[in-house]
Amino acid sequence: MRVKPWVAFRTDLPDDQVENEQDIVVFGGRNVAVAIGEILARLGCEVEEPKPAGENGWEFAVKYKERHRFWCQVNSTSHPVFRLLFENMTFRSRAAPNAAAYAELALKLDAALKKSSLFHDVCWWSLKEGPPDDEIELAEAKKRARKDRSGPISAAGKEGGRPAWGCLALALYVTLSGVAAPLLFFVGIAGDTLGATLFGSAFLIVVGLLGFFRALDEPVEH
């Protein structure tokens, strides 16, 4: 399952941006971030206070079931349309249990946002698509929405994607180099000392295997 990290919506909350005569003093969206934080808290998350992130709006960290960490950023181009970037920050985020927790919380958040009277036209977008900027774009997107648009889970998930072949080939090359290095040392073709060869070999194998997992965990979208 692949979760779309962007959520776009319209809100009934007032615009809380603070401006002086020349510039923006406080970017708008704190009230939206607080409202989303309260929703996440009701879903069983530990939610931090929103912090200002300059032109990126407001951001806060979320902890779910003790060990799953998420990061939320709320920003906007123009009130009342807002975007929430909801990302999985758990270590090895693509590992099955972590990805499942991400999908579970995203589905719960989706249902809670759609149920809330403060938020309307809730749509989820992949990183590649990016979210809409204003009400017109949001309404148009909603009109031509495919069946999977309104939910957080992408139809072109792991099954619909393809492995990152370039990354896979590089990982294979690095891993095989790591395996070949000690063999070449014992045959007498390469390497200065056994210690250095084994250290280099272990390093290459670890890097190569990490690359393998990364390439297989992160299928490229069509």
Partner: peptide, 16 residues
């Protein structure tokens, strides 16, 4: 991950 940004309300017709 950056999209559009806010501008002061009197700029660009408040569209950001």
């Amino acid at each position: 991950k950056a999209g559009g940004f806010r501008l002061p309300a009197d700029l660009n017709g408040g569209k950001g």
